[in-house]
């Protein structure tokens, strides 16, 4: 008898608590920016593709759902010729983001990805590439790297001396 009353009391009390369930899709929950949802490829602060096609995300992916091919522009800047993620395989573990040395690949809080056709879950570079830098605003890999690209010659990266004069005999 007493326990039944206790239970009723508990239920009554809960009526005055804040509701946890939301009316999805009319309303949706807040997801932190570091939430691991749909993957995007971002651009550097200069608006260029960040991905340098290093294959590290593909290598680290436990389900092997990233596939790409590297290519170069005429000045030697490397980028992916194609970049494909098969989201029907992706487990949103975020390893690719951790492996990426350029902050290019990032997971976003978007998780609304259901499709009737599996094929629609295959995203190509066009589907993945966004126009901004995502979570990391300032990093530009090519400003740090030693490779010369258009607009950044040898010795012009951060923390670099100008190219040495090999012919100099000065001590």
């Amino acid at each position: 008898m007493l326990s039944a009353l206790k239970t009723i009391w508990l239920v009554l009390r809960h009526m005055f608590h804040r509701r946890v369930t939301v009316q999805y899709p009319e309303t949706s929950n807040y997801l932190a920016p570091r939430y691991r949802g749909r993957i995007v490829l971002t651009r550097d602060p200069d608006g260029e593709e960040r991905c340098v096609a290093c294959y590290l995300c593909a290598a680290v992916c436990p389900v092997d759902c990233i596939s790409l091919q590297a290519t170069e522009d005429e000045h030697g800047r490397r980028y992916p010729e194609f970049f494909r993620i098969n989201f029907s395989r992706c487990i949103f573990c975020g390893f690719c983001e951790e492996a990426c040395p350029t902050y290019s690949i990032q997971l976003t809080p978007d998780n609304e990805m259901s499709e009737y056709k599996r094929k629609n879950l295959v995203y190509e570079k066009d589907d993945l590439l966004i126009s901004g830098p995502g979570k990391y605003h300032d990093y530009n890999f090519y400003r740090v790297a030693g490779l010369a690209i258009q607009g950044k010659d040898k010795g012009e990266a951060e923390n670099e001396e100008p190219p040495v004069d090999v012919r100099s005999l000065l001590p």
Partner: peptide, 15 residues
């Protein structure tokens, strides 16, 4: 053993 892309390299042709 680190060969990558198995589940994506042909995904554009066939799932």
């Amino acid at each position: 053993h680190r060969y990558s892309g198995r589940t994506a390299m042909r995904a554009h042709i066939d799932m």
